[in-house]
Design a protein around this nucleic acid. Structure first.
Ligand SMILES: [Zn+2]
Ligand SMILES: [Zn+2]
Ligand SMILES: [Zn+2]
Ligand SMILES: [Zn+2]
Lengths: 156, 156
DNA sequence: CACCTTTATGATAATTTTTCTCAATGACTC
DNA sequence: GAGTCATTGAGAAAAATTATCATAAAGGTG
């Protein structure tokens, strides 16, 4: 039976459509979709500010998922493009469930709250750089940082 | 005598002017400039692709600098803005001696070679984001990645 | 559905990285 | 030159990451 995901505690909600995306993506690499992978994915998909690996390990202990598995799954999810890394308030690596397509992030330096930024056109600059440097520019990583509304000190 | 830096092996060259900048910056925080700090700085100032902390520790063993010191100094240099972090080919954190001012980087995904990018105007976008999201946008971090000329597979 | 092949998992150990502690050293001020 | 106080490095300790390997189970097959 492939469908025992329902047994999983559902305090980690996510649209089930994505599960099929996951399965397809893993399959394509000859990998298998397991309940553990789904649970790991759900944890991240549900997080608004991303998690560090140790944080994820601690959170997933509750579901009896070993840390070796967490490390492996997070790596896979990264390689498959389901997770991106961003930097938290202290510069620490955090993994964030990413939507598909070209997306960047606006990160609060105080509380770590993350907001997506879809407005970005650096393609012109990329072409210019390629011409100037001889690099074959393949992409970019862009993070904005500042203070989210809740953390912004009141003006005046 | 404050000037026993010359005793240091000079296979790590750097313009001496910067040393005074360092001293001033440290002083401003009530910190002292020591030969160890200078040596650490020189190592980074001389690196073209940046170093990870462990790499720096290994390299500085030769100069009998303890790892505790390396960690401390790198942190200070970061806070003072002399070092920036970038991501190497495998996503690992690397510390790179940064020039002052607004600078980004173009990083080879194969060999890690880094090239500076000074051409960037995201201020317009920053203002737009601030208006749209309510964030007080303070800055951004931008990395381009691709293949440097030497690593680019020949076309055709 | 039962079977089989192959990947995945998790307990454990081993490494590596990072942080602490503290006595001794040395930078900088007066 | 003397005194103050940040700095240093050895070493211990903690934390994070990776490696092993016997066992469990996913997914395909008939
Ligand atoms: Zn905030
Ligand atoms: Zn972009
Ligand atoms: Zn990073
Ligand atoms: Zn290269």
């Amino acid at each position: 039976m492939t469908q025992d995901y329902d047994k999983r505690p559902d305090d980690l909600r996510i649209d089930n459509l994505k599960i099929d995306d996951l399965r397809r993506a893993f399959r394509r690499q000859g990998l298998r979709l397991t309940p553990q992978k789904v649970t790991v994915w759900r944890l991240f998909a549900d997080s608004t500010k991303g998690l560090t690996l140790p944080e994820a390990c601690r959170a997933l202990q509750e579901y009896a998922i070993g840390q070796a598995t967490v490390y492996r799954v997070v790596n896979s999810l990264c390689e498959l493009g389901f997770l991106l890394h961003i930097h938290g308030p202290n510069g620490e690596h955090r993994y964030l469930a990413g939507h598909s397509g070209h997306v960047h992030h606006l990160i609060c330096r105080t509380c770590g709250h993350v907001r997506e930024v879809t407005d970005c056109d650096l393609s012109t600059l990329e072409k210019l750089l390629a011409a100037q440097t001889g690099f074959a520019v393949e992409g970019h990583h862009l993070e904005f940082y500042g203070q989210c509304p809740r953390c912004t000190p009141l003006p005046g």
